[in-house]
Design a protein around this nucleic acid. Structure first.
Length: 901
RNA sequence: GGGCGACUAGCUCAGUUGGUUAGAGCGCUCCCCUCACACGGGAGAGGUCAAAGGUUCAAGUCCUUUGUCGCCCA
């Protein structure tokens, strides 16, 4: 079979084929009836308006790594994909598109608008799912869900109605956050706080019936039009005489009372505050206590309302300017000071939200939060990293009621119908035809929809068929794990826990891994709108999806944010290329070798790796013992790391194994064996090589699915197995563990490195073969040299290696010493830079002296000896002995160098 | 105002329960286009772990304070 393999790995040539294959073959379809422990995970549903950004890429990489890893280890695995209807975002997108066509969405009417949004969804929405398929995520696409689908909408209604009947959902008039651009209220979480430089205006309010005035400080003068009182602290001596009197509200010429309330901070401004119950949360409370009227002076789009008198129709910030001017003109503005204060911004539109009293639907959170706190306390849900747990508790213990309603058209419409006759509120799962109280048919449904996060909060069970007792629900719920960014801990994770517990009486997931965010070099959160985001799709194109995945995984240390750099990405791409070329070497060489008709199947058939390592002549060679021991250690490390969400350790482990051990040492070492004239030796070498490559590919697969799938298909495959993704994850076999081989080969590596170091320092031509000597008093070390001489000669480019226990001559060559051995290359002395050699020795000696002194001091300390664990003391002693030997050797070498010179 | 995190090699970052000369990638220096790979191979240089105190036989790791930066909540 002819193998035409490109010299450089070209992911663009490989990825589309496998991405399509995985979807077409439905390889990742979950079967609730299949055996095995369960691993189930639901996707954090991305917005239907969204396209894949770097944050998703990280999220999905972590999810897919764990999913593939579990699947290969025999778990019954489900990775459920889907999307969120994203109320505000989607409505904004379609409204904007309509506006571009010159259509005001309001003129279309609700029904038509919603129809257009669905149409938009079908045509342009869900780009992200296409991208997920492109990047080969191992989802079960047959189970894709959408939060606004009929099935899930029904769950939303059931949940709403039950909570209403339980008294946990209620409708009330309260202070809310209003976005004048999105034209809806927002929950507290959807409001971002930002420090802004502003002013504090000091306004004189004349006291009625006197010549006095009180001075009121405000950051939002335009709201004064809605003042219905001014207030002072009851303890404040300065103003006690005024309580009960009235002031004339400037500009509006309205008389309002002066009252006393504890809420007033005597230190703020002048100690007199204006009370605007309709536009400030604190004032709202004061207004309630004192039964003050509320005057809403604004319209939905942030202009002044009719209640604002002559200012009606002005934009709120225009009104502010005009009011300040007018006050100044009337001599009522005492002063203006600079003032920094926090303003609330709408998360979506970034406009300043207006605190505004309105009637909305709310969800009572305290009763829901308590069991959710307890579940995490009891460890029924593990939160990783640990420090997020505290954040969760803090928020949950101070939780406030959730504003559920949104003044939008796109979303789950609130299932409440108002009777026009008896005013009864009918809340029902099915649309009612008449009022349950009076039987009137004049019913009008609430026009609002629910916060998008309400349906997301149900996601882990609504997607699995709840409330029906489906086989999916029984098998896959609670889900095993939730992976998402810590930025939506409150928005989403906490609410899922609360509602999951309330409705299913089970936790929605057993663990939450909150991963880092990807930031820009400046530390900011990456953002497409600010132009600071990296486009993962373009980068995947350039570097390959595997490289992107590997790069993110290798940087994803729990708890710290990631700053992605193209350097790092390039390094991951290089790794893919290394894998490609190592495989290319393996497959390419096979053809050139004459193994007397031994077929690929005989060398690499699926049952072959199971029995590796193979022995050529009675016993397994050192290099194979070493490599498979390293492999087992790496597999253990990867398992351990992934178990604990330590993706970076796992990734770095496989990198080190594949590149450092397998390529740099193993392949280089076995090259001659593969061509051995002794057929038995060659066959054993090939089998071991294939077994190692096969295991390495499977080990790498969760991280780099494309390249491993491609290469795996070039190996003989297990019968009935279509994909490496369905093959088994390599097992850390205990019989592979071989400490003796590890030690011995490590010694050989050291010897080769020391010899290479001499060569480099002596500036020997790389190809120039020279004679070398090895000396050690340790017999085992000498034997190791004898038995691995061939390999050492080749990798250090030596003519010969003389092994002895004799002390090596110091002149006429260069020597390197370690505690265990000395090596020497005899070569004409003129190429040795004596000065440089001396400097090198001095530096090394200095370092050793420091280390030795520190150890001697410690060991001389009786308290240390009595308190430190035995193991530590012994280790220290052993190292000290080694270092002392090494130091002695280096010193005498230095002396001899000097006398020779 | 409250809380959290970061500060380790020129750059970007690892370093789990305190324990033996602090690691990686990139960059840099030197040598090499050796028949898998120059997206490569080989050999190096480079760090008083932000600062100051403290606990301990032992601190990059624990505690306190300070500084700089960032994030979250109010």
């Amino acid at each position: 079979m002819a193998r035409e393999i490109a010299k450089t790995y070209e992911p663009q040539q490989i990825e589309p084929h496998w991405a399509e294959f995985w979807v077409r073959e439905q390889l990742f379809r979950a079967d609730p009836n299949a055996p095995g422990p369960v691993f189930s995970i639901v996707i954090p549903p991305p917005n239907v308006t969204g396209s894949l950004h770097i944050g998703h890429m990280l999220d999905h990489t972590e999810i897919d790594i764990l999913t593939r890893w579990h699947r290969m280890r025999g778990y019954n695995t489900l990775y459920l994909p889907g999307m969120d209807h994203a109320g505000i975002s989607t409505q904004r997108v379609v409204v904007r598109e309509l506006a571009e066509q010159g259509i005001d969405y309001r003129t279309l009417g609700r029904e038509e608008f919603v129809r257009r949004v669905w149409k938009w969804k079908e045509e342009s929405g869900g780009q992200i799912t296409r991208q997920m398929k492109q990047i080969g995520e191992s989802c079960d696409w047959s189970r894709e869900r959408f939060t606004l689908s009929p099935e899930l909408s029904r769950v939303v209604r059931l949940v709403f109605v039950q909570l209403y009947n339980e008294g946990l959902i209620y409708r009330a008039h309260y202070m809310t956050n209003w976005c004048p651009v999105c034209l809806t209220v927002l929950s507290d979480l959807e409001v971002l706080h930002e420090e802004r430089h502003g002013h504090l205006w000091y306004v004189r309010y004349p006291v009625v019936g006197t010549q006095e005035w009180v001075v009121v400080a405000t950051t939002r003068p335009e709201t004064m039009l809605g003042d219905t009182a001014v207030a002072v602290n009851p303890e404040d001596e300065r103003y006690r005489h005024l309580v009960g009197k009235r002031v004339l509200l400037p500009l509006m010429e309205r008389e309002i009372p002066i009252l006393a309330d504890d809420m007033v901070d005597r230190e703020f401004g002048t100690g007199v505050v204006k009370i605007t119950p309709a536009h400030d949360p604190n004032d709202f409370e004061v207004g309630r206590r004192h039964r003050l009227p509320e005057i809403d002076v604004m319209t939905d789009n942030g202009h002044m309302s009719a209640a604002a008198g002559t200012y009606a129709g002005l934009d709120r910030f225009e009104a502010r300017k005009k009011i300040v001017e007018d006050l100044k003109a009337r001599g009522l503005l005492e002063k203006v000071t600079e003032h920094t204060h926090a303003v609330g911004l709408c998360e979506r539109s970034r406009t300043i939200v207006e605190p505004r009293a309105s009637t909305q639907w709310f969800c009572k959170m305290k009763p829901l939060a308590e069991p959710a706190i307890a579940a995490v306390e009891r460890g029924e849900i593990q939160i990783v990293p640990e420090n997020r747990r505290q954040e969760y508790f803090n928020w949950m213990r101070n939780i406030r009621d959730w504003t559920l309603s949104r003044q939008l058209w796109w979303g789950h419409r609130i299932p409440a119908w108002y009777c026009e006759d008896c005013k009864h509120v009918n809340v029902a799962v099915e649309d009612p035809s008449k009022c349950v109280k009076c039987g009137s048919t004049k019913l009008k449904q609430d026009s609002d929809v629910l916060d998008t996060w309400f349906s997301s909060a149900l996601w882990p069970f609504s997607t699995l068929g709840w409330p029906e007792d489906t086989s999916d629900f029984r098998r896959y719920y609670p889900t095993s794990l939730l992976i998402t960014g810590y930025d939506i801990l409150f928005f989403w994770v906490a609410r899922m826990i609360m509602l999951g517990l309330h409705f299913t009486h089970k936790v929605p997931f057993r663990a939450v891994y909150l991963h880092s965010l990807v930031r820009t070099a400046g530390g900011e959160k990456m953002s497409k709108s600010k132009g600071t985001g990296l486009d993962p799709v373009a980068l995947n194109q350039e570097y390959g999806t595997d490289a992107m995945r590997f790069c993110l995984a290798s940087m994803a240390a729990p708890g710290t944010d990631i700053v992605l750099s193209e350097d790092r990405l390039a390094s991951a791409r290089n790794f893919a290329n290394k894998i490609w070329n190592a495989s290319r070497f393996v497959f390419g060489n096979l053809e050139k070798v004459d193994l007397g008709g031994v077929s690929l199947e005989e060398l690499a058939a699926p049952e072959i790796p199971a029995k590796a390592p193979y022995a050529a002549g009675g016993r397994v060679s050192l290099i194979d013992g070493w490599l498979f021991s390293r492999l087992a250690a790496t597999i253990s490390l990867v398992n351990e790391a992934l178990q604990n969400y330590r993706f970076h350790e796992a990734a770095q482990g496989v990198y080190q194994f594949f590149w450092g051990d397998f390529c740099d040492w193993y392949i280089e070492w076995v090259k001659p064996e593969l061509q051995s004239a002794e057929k038995a030796r060659a066959v054993a070498a090939w089998r071991n090589l294939f077994a190692a490559l096969d295991a390495a590919l499977r080990l790498l697969h969760p991280f780099m699915p494309f390249i491993t799938e491609e290469l795996w298909h070039q190996l003989p495959q297990r019968a009935g197995t279509k994909s490496i993704a369905l093959d088994v994850f390599p097992e850390a076999r205990t019989d592979w563990k071989n400490d003796e081989a590890l030690d011995q080969f490590s010694l050989i590596q050291d010897v080769i490195k020391e010899l290479r170091n001499i060569r480099a320092e002596m500036k020997l031509e790389p190809k120039k073969k020279v004679a070398a000597e090895f000396s050690s008093s340790d017999e085992q070390a000498r034997r190791a040299m004898e038995s691995s001489r061939e390999g050492i000669l080749r990798l250090a480019a030596l003519l010969e290696l003389k092994v002895s226990a004799d002390r090596l001559p110091q002149s006429g060559g260069a020597v390197r010493s370690t505690a265990l051995f000395d090596v020497r290359i005899a070569y004409v002395a003129e190429s040795i830079d004596v000065e440089a050699e001396e400097a090198r020795l001095r530096k090394q000696i200095e370092g050793l002296e420091k280390a030795i002194a520190a150890k001697e001091k410690q060991l001389a300390d009786d308290t240390f000896r009595s308190r430190a664990p035995e193991k530590v003391v012994r280790g220290l002693e052993a190292t000290l002995a080694e270092q002392t030997t090494e130091l002695r050797k280096l010193r005498s070498r230095l002396e001899e160098l000097k006398t020779a010179a």
